[in-house]
Amino acid sequence: MSMVPTLLSVENLSKSYGGVHAVRSVSFELRAGEILALIGPNGAGKSTCFDMLNGQNMPDSGRITLLGEDTVGRKPRAIWRLGVGRTFQITATFPTMTVRENVQVALVSYGRQLFNLWGSTAAYARGEAGRLLELVGMGAYAERPCGELAYGDLKRLELAIALANQPRLLLMDEPTAGMAPRERIELMRLTARIAREQSIGVLFTEHDMDVVFEHADRILVLNRGSLIAEGSPEEVRGNPQVRAIYLGEGLVYDARHREGAGA
């Protein structure tokens, strides 16, 4: 692992709102090709952490270094230009466009053609858009209106859009929320495959422990703004503090992923 370059490094990140510490002194690193899960109880500071990483929120203190550049204080679109792709908990796509056009807009932005008033968008990077859609298994839907897609397909389209700027890092906020169990597994398998092939680092938050334990290389556990545990799925699963605060008795996720169940 030590040969693999560090993509993202977070040092002593802190943020408070009106005297409440939402995030306290959180530090971690993410390497290329690694899939890192950020879990913790509701209100533990996951969203705040995420928003600071993608530039929607300013930390009070701490450093975020992405591909060697300090990103604190940069706008989301500037961070995107550095090579970060994002997906949202509730999908955000362009419903008045076709599936292909959704990806083409992202490619237009990546190619810095946003203020081109005279060209034809339909012809712009058509092949590249098609390739990205094929990659996520949406090739057959390219000419469909985006507003007609089923939820699981929208999630895959979002992934294609997120890959348009050839990102080095993917930030995925509850990527499988609202999906059926098999769709969840399929989406994460796809993400993992792309991440490994293109050595993209993935940071995701998730409440579905079946997804987390199946796909994360490493897990960070956040509670009341602080990092309370970090390690492999086996280590986290066996951590009594994490079980007490977050995992509970393990009644509501797959038995295979409970502690000691033949990991």
Partner: peptide, 15 residues
């Protein structure tokens, strides 16, 4: 049109 359809997504693709 992207900024109209989804301000969140358009900002997230660098617009």
């Amino acid at each position: 049109r992207a900024t109209r359809d989804s301000p969140l997504r358009s900002e997230a693709i660098g617009i």
